[in-house]
Design a protein around this nucleic acid. Structure first.
Lengths: 219, 219
DNA sequence: TCAATAGTGTCTCTTAGACAATATTGA
DNA sequence: TCAATATTGTCTAAGAGACACTATTGA
């Protein structure tokens, strides 16, 4: 038996989410190399046992090399496996999702060889290579589940934000509108929300209180 | 570099749960071979790409070989990884949990070379090898989470069961008592529960209606 | 002033929790 | 009859949803 038949390929793929224009976006990369060259896929890469201390390390490293950014939140979703999902052979792929603050979208550069695109996470315009459409759906559902359970996706927001920003992020994730009153009632005693005394977002309407996430907040 | 340094070990471990004496139990095996020979651990084994069509297949195969039984429910929990968690080297371990109906506990035999034991899942008496104590805690939490969200662990019960059986299974999983009235109110319209007309469990008290799980029920 | 958005209040309905009451068996 | 467990009912409190109302700015 060849090495290929004895050892599976061990990969990590990442669904990198952000919120822009009230939409949940996910980063897709256009693959430069085989397999699936030219096709769009979630950013991903092969585990390097000599470098990585865990699969999460792999995800962090891959994300840094493909996007140039570090993310404030990274979480395992599930692991996909099988002989046919990658043309190179039997593969195991640990899927993670990551949250990118909206004010760092501009820092995402790509690695200069692969094109990148922010797509609607609920309905990406591109056909995904491999089984990445399934991976993306799974990641979205996991994220939705967490937000539906009252977790606050503060990592998606800029360092200062209004409650309306937060509500719109939740709406973008869940794909439906939320009632303002109900939303505020639910979060009003959350210790992760620190109102910034005297800091307001001004505009042609009543000023909105600015908040920041409590230090050490974890999604 | 050697093959060991280039390719991680890819494993599957399984937390096999059942309910006995109102307690949630998990199956541990006493390892016969190195590494950790003589120590107790969750049943697990190495992915065989030439045989398995997925990591779930690996779990099914390992469970069959180590216990002799097939299970009605198997579900992925999370994947653990790192260079130090297994003395053989860099390893990736996909953790699954499985539910065994109480009336099939007797069918679990072990593979004649390794001792097996049903332990309290919340507080197993044995010290676990590798990082399996963490794996077990993670699996228990996942199972609790699902039951707390009103999923009914019917796969743990015999083919016919009373609502009290079901409640006790939930209590064993959650590790706390539930209010009978609240519990029944919550499940009373669940389409998975089929009352068996005229079938009752009799004893020195009012007979209890017997139920069975709807065909095609999934946990 | 008005448009626009921030922020609050109120009513109803559903559900969870605690606990009591009733029902039906074997011994 | 009694002990034991099954099954149902009742009261209360908390929370969700819908929607109306008030507040405060820039233009």
């Amino acid at each position: 038996m060849t090495i290929k038949e004895l050892f599976p390929l061990v990969l990590t793929d990442i669904a990198l989410f952000t919120v822009e224009e009230r939409q949940l976006k996910v980063l897709l990369v256009q693959r430069k190399d085989a397999p699936a060259a030219g096709q769009w896929a979630l950013p991903g890469g092969i585990l390097k046992p000599d470098i990585d201390r865990s699969l999460e390390d792999t995800a962090t490293r891959v994300l840094r090399s493909k996007t140039g950014v570090a993310v404030p939140h990274l979480e395992q979703v599930a692991t996909f496996s099988g002989p046919d999902r990658d043309p190179r052979g039997w593969s195991v792929s640990a899927l993670y999702y990551a949250l990118l603050p909206r004010d760092r979208i501009g820092a995402v550069t790509g690695d200069k060889t692969e094109a990148i695109a922010w797509c609607d996470a609920h309905k990406p315009g591109h056909r995904c290579a491999f089984d990445h459409a399934l991976l993306l759906r799974t990641a979205v559902i996991r994220l939705q589940d967490k937000v539906a359970r009252s977790a606050l996706p503060l990592h998606l927001l800029a360092s200062q934000f209004t409650l309306t920003d937060l509500q719109q992020a939740c709406e973008a994730i869940l794909g439906r509108e939320l009632d303002k009153s109900v939303f505020r009632r639910r979060i009003k005693d959350d210790p992760a929300l620190i109102p910034l005394a005297g800091e307001f977002l001004r505009g042609p309407q009543r000023p909105a209180q600015l908040y920041q996430a409590r230090a050490g907040f974890t999604f």
